[in-house]
Design a protein around this nucleic acid. Sequence first.
DNA 1: GAGGTGCAAGCATTTACCTCA
DNA 2: GGTGAGGTAAATGCTTGCACC
Length: 278
Amino acid sequence: MAGKDDCLGLSLSLRCPENLNPDPLPPPPPTRLAVSAPFPLNLLRSPSPFMQLQKISRTDAFQTVAARQAEPRAFHVGIDINRTTSVVGCDEEDEEGMVTSPNSTVSSISGKRSEREENDGERAASSSMEIEEDGGDAASRKKLRLSKEQAAVLEETFKEHSTLNPKQKMGLAKQLNLRPRQVEVWFQNRRARTKLKQTEVDCEYLRRCCENLTEENRRLQKEVNDLRALKLSPHFYSNMTPPTTLTMCPRCEHVASAAAPSRQPPTWAAAESDRSKS
DNA sequence: GAGGTGCAAGCATTTACCTCA
DNA sequence: GGTGAGGTAAATGCTTGCACC
């Protein structure tokens, strides 16, 4: 794209008229996510409201009973969801090998899918425990809300890197007493939220750019009209030097200027006439 | 080297559940 | 207590990149 412009020797700069605007539009915070835009936007990741969560040291996480009591949402069904999953098994061998549910119809399309199915198996086991404690409702998938501490740690990790390699995922899952799949899903959803937020910011930025350009266009149109009106007025040429005439050599396309058409011919024209004479 | 295949990872979209006003 | 809106964990399907044959 840019290369084409370079070839033509053109430099079209589509500037947002921030400098024209008394209230300049701050460039959007840059992002690491690829958001296609018609011109380069400054796209660094915006500080997210999710990142304003209270910072809790990792060693302190999960340790205070008070913190657990302060966050009853994580235990909405009267069961510590994390403990439930940990009972099911979050051991390193189990995580990738996982428990295969007798209920899961394993028609593995891909490894990823098979992992999911295995996780489903684990989930089935997990929910079966809930069934035991809840006393029924087998088919419903329980929504497992992460605790504040877990979310905070995940958030901190996300700040460092928005994607995880398998080792990091395992480590984090172990640290947070979650299944690796949960960590994976959380990061996926978190990336989606970031992207959505950034898209909103970009949209707003482009909208204001459009407004500014419209205003600028209106201003320039007005200027053109004013100049036209001025040109038509009888006094326009009275104090004016004659317009410069540009003449181009048809052969070499050299452009020469002359103050007035009736004066000295351009140098290339003289050369041409010399050549024709000889 | 080109093409087919399997796998892993990520993304977009949707669903289901939970919380809160 | 019922209800709708909003938030979010999780499911599903698709795409892409890579390794291997």
